[in-house]
């Protein structure tokens, strides 16, 4: 089966010489279409950095990254990262990071607008997503009028808008209660299954582990025990 994400020896270092800090130390990772993968690890272990590298926000110092069959940094020419990002990648941040001057609906319309989907098709897609995430009644409010949970759900709707190949989520359920968190998880689960989207999600939340296909444990920038299935290993002390 085709891999949605393939990474080999991803390394990210900050600083030069003696001040050099390796935040990622050769991470290998792969996700098929339809995979739901949790990334866990203590604070400072490099989870966010890994997501940013996978999401083309941060360029790795070394290593190979293949997204949707395309070698991003290894090829003779570099693909248009902005275009890649808006068409293939959906981001869900730790904080919703909605555009404050756009309503919930407009925030969901934005990625559609950026890929040239406008008019009726866009409005229907946005309405469908807002409905899906149970924020249809908040659609015309500005982010500042929404609760934290509502904001996060709008952010998820925004990430889903373009039906991306990969969704990268940094602790998306941290600000939600158990029930809503679980429903978001099930949503992501269903999404990855139905649309063949690979979902990589950083989470501290052991309650969610049961839903995922695989857990990747990061420790000091390296993958510990790769490929462990969810059922086999849930080191509770890790995920405080």
């Amino acid at each position: 089966m085709e891999y949605a994400v393939e990474a080999e020896g991803l390394t990210k270092a900050y600083g030069e010489g003696r001040a050099r800090v390796e935040v990622l130390k050769g991470v290998d990772l792969s996700a098929r279409r339809g995979d739901l993968i949790a990334i866990m690890g203590p604070s400072g272990s490099g989870k966010t950095t890994l997501l940013h590298v996978l999401g083309l926000v941060t360029e790795p110092t070394a290593g190979r990254l293949i997204l949707g069959g395309q070698d991003i940094y290894g090829g003779r020419w570099r693909p248009d990262l902005q275009r890649f990002r808006r068409e293939k990648i959906g981001f869900i941040f730790q904080f919703a990071n909605l555009i404050p001057f756009l309503t919930a609906r407009e925030n969901v319309l934005l990625p559609l607008d950026l890929t040239g989907v406008r008019g009726r098709a866009a409005r229907e897609r946005a309405a469908e997503l807002l409905d899906y995430l149970d924020v249809a009644d908040r659609a015309d409010l500005l982010p500042e009028k929404l609760s934290g949970g509502e904001r996060q759900r709008v952010a998820i709707a925004r990430a889903l808008a373009n039906d991306p190949a990969v969704i990268l989520a940094d602790e998306p359920t941290a600000s939600l209660d158990t029930e809503r968190g679980l429903s978001v998880m099930r949503l992501l689960r269903r999404l990855s299954a139905e649309h063949g989207t690979a979902v990589l999600m950083v989470t501290h939340d052991t309650r969610m582990i049961g839903e995922v296909d695989r857990v990747i444990h990061l420790l000091d920038g390296a993958v510990r025990d790769p490929g462990t299935t969810a059922g086999q290993s849930i080191p509770g002390g890790f995920c405080s």
Partner: peptide
């Protein structure tokens, strides 16, 4: 800055 960064992450073309 923040709005511009978010737009960039969403893949907005620089021109936009």
């Amino acid at each position: 800055v923040k709005e511009m960064a978010v737009l960039k992450l969403l893949g907005a073309p620089g021109r936009r």
